[in-house]
């Protein structure tokens, strides 16, 4: 899925030896994990157009993770083979789970804030998936939401287009392809052109009225868009990392390259 993307001869890369010239006394510079760097870069880009950072718990109720987001009761994403569930029920007897996406932050923020608002919410999510080079049971997403009067698809296109240009580069080609997510309508997948291939980087759409109602916002008065991105893939694309397991290995042969 991800190209290793290392080319011998590039600066500090490949065959040429990396010469560490600093004596120990000078070697005090720490390293920031590439996930931190990516999250902060994304937050910065969105903050420039007024998005504030929001957060939510990693353990969620079934309601916030699924029901409120219009995921059908019998949807397969609720099955044990896709989602981890906690052994113990929540305080009100509801089923609890490590959240499968950052979208419940939408619900929590709507419930506790009056529109208009613009949020960007990075965080860890969990899926019941066996681990390999491109899959992890724990990974990161970032959620975005904008609620206001008369929010349009043209606004959504503006926001995501400017993000893609700033994050991946001004020349990056992008497309807005129809897709489906239960919590938005119309729904889209945003692809970028990456080395002659189209790669999905973001899901997005207009917030469905059912979702707004679950968040306590009247869909007759307000409208909005939401989007979500898988951060691991973006980190991997950006730096040419070929194995997602590196991200959570705690191995400094990985981290100290950043």
């Amino acid at each position: 899925m991800i190209d290793a993307n290392t080319k011998a001869g590039e600066e500090g890369v490949g065959g040429a030896p990396v010469v560490v010239s600093a004596a120990p006394a000078e070697n005090t510079g720490g390293h920031l994990h590439p996930m931190t760097q990516t999250i902060n870069e994304i937050v910065k880009i969105f903050s420039e157009i007024g998005f504030q950072v929001a957060e939510g718990p990693e353990i969620e109720t079934e309601f916030n993770n699924f029901d409120a987001l219009n995921v059908p009761k019998d949807h397969t994403s609720r099955d044990m083979q896709d989602t981890f569930w906690l052994k113990d029920a929540g305080l009100a007897g509801e089923r609890m789970l490590p959240r499968t996406h950052t979208s419940p932050v939408q619900i929590r923020f709507m419930q506790s804030h009056q529109p208009p608002f613009r949020i960007i919410a990075p965080g860890k999510v969990f899926r019941n998936e066996s681990t390999d080079a491109t899959h992890e049971a724990e990974f990161f997403q970032v959620e975005g939401m904008y609620i206001d009067k008369n929010v349009s698809l043209a606004n959504l296109k503006f926001v995501l287009e400017s993000f893609v240009k700033k994050f991946f580069g001004e020349e990056t080609e992008m497309r807005f392809r129809p897709s489906y997510f239960p919590f938005v309508e119309p729904g889209f997948e945003i692809d970028i052109r990456w080395k002659d291939r189209w790669l999905e980087v973001c899901g997005a759409g207009l917030v469905r009225p059912e979702v707004m109602e679950a968040g306590g916002i009247d869909p007759k008065d307000w409208s909005g868009f939401a989007f979500g991105m898988g951060l691991d893939r973006m980190v991997m694309l950006k730096y040419g990392i070929d194995d997602i397991r590196n991200m959570y290995s705690g191995d400094l042969r990985f981290v100290n390259q950043f």
């Binding site: 005090t28 720490g30 990693e58 044990m80 981890f84 969990f126 959570y248 981290v255």
Partner: peptide, 19 residues
């Protein structure tokens, strides 16, 4: 001079158990 790591939240032990 510290390096930041990200490690797994799902571990062998804890108070909150996965079904």
């Amino acid at each position: 001079g510290f390096s930041e790591v990200y490690t797994h939240s799902l571990k062998e032990n804890g108070d909150v158990e996965i079904l």
